[in-house]
């Protein structure tokens, strides 16, 4: 299922830059990692470790577990980098998806809700769904992009933020969120839908700008 998500990945930060002088986390760099290039791996680590660790820590809420998970993610990334398909998305999006899936699997226990995010990554994507939007990092440095996302998320009403966070970082379905918040399922669905819709439009300049 996550492979399906990858297949319609819209962000393709192929020329992602963390600072004006920092090299990019490109598919080419990831290919070098796949060939066992330690220097490329170090470069990849430098450019991705902070956001991946932040994500793992947010999901697991435990520094040691997040560290351990990040180690597993990088080992898996190193192992699978050779078979990475750039058409399925950017390396950064791939690493984010891998980290989030592994963290949520760990948080909930594998396949505890009838679907296993980790296994779904291995699924073959549908070729007809492969496509990518322009790279938001073409026109936005990391700091600038971070500010845009923070502002967009902060502008959401608190109930919408909460519902999105419970889904994205908590790995909960709309029914589980409704039970947790003691709200009707329809209310939760609406909150997620409205919140994501606002984010979609607020962040659209990120991938529309040229």
């Amino acid at each position: 299922m996550t492979a399906f998500i990858d297949s319609v990945e819209v962000l393709n930060p192929a020329r992602m830059r963390l600072s004006p002088n920092q090299p990019s986390l490109t598919p080419e760099l990831l290919a070098r990692v796949g060939k066992g290039d330690a220097q490329a791996f170090a470069q990849c680590y430098e450019q991705s470790s902070s956001v991946l660790f932040t994500l793992a820590l947010r999901i697991l809420n435990n520094h040691d577990e997040a560290s351990e998970l990040l180690q597993d993610v990088y080992i898996e990334a190193w192992r699978k980098a050779g078979s990475f398909d750039p058409k399925r998305g950017s390396p950064m999006a791939w690493l984010i998806t891998l980290t989030r899936s592994r963290a949520i699997d760990r948080l909930r226990g594998s396949a505890s809700r009838g679907r296993n995010l980790t296994d779904s990554i291995e699924e073959t994507s549908a070729g007809d769904l492969r496509s990518a939007l322009p790279d938001p990092f073409d026109t936005h440095a990391l700091g600038e992009l971070r500010m845009l996302v923070m502002e967009a998320f902060k502008d959401l009403p608190a109930p919408q933020q909460e519902a999105i966070e419970l889904a994205f970082y908590g790995g909960l379905t709309h029914a589980e969120i409704a039970a947790k918040l003691d709200k009707p399922i329809g209310t939760v669905k609406t909150r997620i839908k409205l919140g994501m819709n606002k984010l979609r439009y607020a962040l659209r300049p990120c991938w529309e700008a040229k």
Partner: peptide, 18 residues
């Protein structure tokens, strides 16, 4: 676009160093 927005969500978190 929804996936694009969702994949940017981690960038809204206060960054932590590995």
């Amino acid at each position: 676009e929804y996936r694009a927005a969702a994949n940017l969500l981690p960038y809204a978190l206060p960054p932590e160093a590995a």
